[in-house]
Design a protein around this nucleic acid. Structure first.
Lengths: 321, 321
DNA sequence: CTGAAAGCGCTTACAG
DNA sequence: CTGAAAGCGCTTACAG
């Protein structure tokens, strides 16, 4: 057994002839080494957890694909989990990942990261926060400047001549949504508008159906008081709004301009191609993975707060062609 | 240690007082039971693998969310893996899942399932094939009647008056693509057309970019010989075509009608709302999970081949309004 | 260079 | 009802 292990892990220590015999036996017996036993012995696994807010959102699956690829380069595998923007589920998955003894966790936290952080720190599991800034120096994080993104998006709408602007966000992902709204208000102030005039529409979830609901809410306003432009907290919402508004005879962008956030692949293919704030998804994946690997490699490691910027992608839905 | 284990697993065997002391110690020491050791001892894990062809395709993430939910009901967790329609990656993941000693695997195989099946059978890992019929009685499968789906889709196009029809499929997922094409030809024959007139366009991958390429290929044909309708092997391709064609001034559905397959959520929100063949994704998830759990529960179990039907969803892209 | 031994953290009979 | 012991399948010193 010891020799088999050596063949598998340190072949150079074994006499070629013995090695061949062992290798043949492995083949004949269809032996598959137990990763479970291996991990128990090693005290650590060779997998990393990625916990996202919504696997059905293309933004997060693109992120997942990037992370998976970068982990594979390091010989690690990814366990993908989906909190569905729900704290209880997040908690359950953090537990599950801890029980699986993952080497580390990449997590897009539901709301404030304090719970996740303390839960992982208690268990000595390295973590890199994604899409959220770590509140202190106890963890790495890679986030997007959402205030800046919100500001750019709304400045663009103002540039197009809009003055009555809505922000469509909602429950869930409080931090990102709040920051994007904050940026929106800054853009209004920059333009000499009253930031409290920003019309805020709340949706149940940051998903397609939420966008349709938001559109219905806006349609209850008399046309004269209705916003002429809306900045949506993500593309799923924007696409839902686009569909509902179009079906109700509201022309995009003439009656209402729209801009989303994420620039998922379907934004460009939408009924009216959707303007959006593109997040640097692959940079995010790469940076987060690298930071985690640096931390788990045990080299002396300073926790870092990396902040990336998003980029304005102008398409027809915001009226600039 | 034995008592701790009893508190955790069979609390009724422990005297309440002792139990309380143990529970308090667990809390104070922040003890997290090692799932790894547990699995080694039990000889089986509490997780199931789901291997899909493309995590960035909403069809598969919807499937994944369903499976995850149904597994959770049974106290199991899901390890999601993505073969990216690549046999080598599929092989690597099957290995990984075997090493993790998952209870079973749900797999949408890349091409023919023979390799996956023998690989899993050798290792005694229960498997349910998804989206592919098992070639023999050695495994369960849940698939969609793709021949029927292709036939329905093309019959619909013919009903709309089209005679010059393209099928856009390609490399990857040979079986599904071939069946859908076969159904398309049957529909042509049913209508008294020559099935060999079906214009076949091959794309590199069944993704958005593939659809754009396909559109470019069709645009090289003189307008008089160009098909007036296209049936796409999935919605991602259809959406890519829709985008490219629109940008080139080809009107959908007037110059070219389109129908996709899967009915992902973005189909309805497309530039021109996309007709599609809706696959019963949640039924698929439920049935596959149930079959796997039945098999792993050890009850005597007959392998079943379940075949579900897809449903025609008519929207504007196919010209019927 | 090889093989026997210890130990990773659990669970489950088993003796007390 | 409790606690000591064996064993799951590995890896890694260690003795030979």
């Amino acid at each position: 057994m010891g020799t088999v292990s050596n063949v598998l892990n340190r072949a150079e220590l074994v006499k070629p002839e013995t090695r061949q015999r062992v290798e043949q036996a492995i083949r004949e017996l269809r032996f598959v080494r137990s990763e479970v036993a291996r991990q128990l012995r090693a005290g650590r696994s060779r997998s990393v957890g990625l916990l996202v807010l919504d696997v059905t959102n293309p933004f997060f699956t693109d992120l997942a694909r990037g992370v998976e690829e970068f982990l594979a380069e390091a010989g690690l595998s990814m366990i993908l989990a989906d909190s569905n923007d729900d704290v209880a589920r997040e908690d359950r998955y953090i537990n599950l990942l801890a029980e699986q003894r993952v080497q580390g966790v990449l997590v897009v936290p539901v709301g404030r990261p304090a719970g996740v952080l303390s839960s992982l720190r208690e268990r000595d599991i390295p973590v890199v926060l994604i899409d959220t800034k770590a509140p202190d120096r106890t963890a790495c994080s890679v986030s997007i400047d959402d205030v800046g993104g919100g500001r750019t998006a709304v400045a663009h709408l103002i540039d197009q001549g809009h003055r009555r602007i809505a922000f469509v966000g909602g429950k869930g992902r409080e931090r990102q949504v709040a920051d994007r709204a904050k940026g929106a208000r800054i853009a209004m102030r920059d333009a000499g508008l009253d930031p409290t005039d920003l019309i805020t529409v709340r949706v149940e979830a940051l998903r397609f159906a939420g966008g349709r609901d938001a559109a219905k809410q806006l349609l209850t306003l008399p046309a004269g008081r209705r916003p002429t432009a809306a900045f949506c907290a993500n593309d799923l919402i924007a696409l839902g709004m686009l569909q509902e508004l179009s079906q109700s005879g509201v022309a995009i962008p003439d009656d209402m301009a729209l801009i989303g956030y994420d620039d998922i692949i379907f934004a460009a293919a939408a009924a009216v191609p959707l303007s959006s704030m593109r997040q640097p998804c692959q940079d995010l994946a790469r940076t987060a993975t690298d930071l985690l690997l640096e931390e788990t490699s045990g080299a002396n490691h300073d926790h870092q707060q990396v902040v990336l910027a998003s980029e304005l992608i102008v398409r027809r839905s915001s009226g600039a062609d």
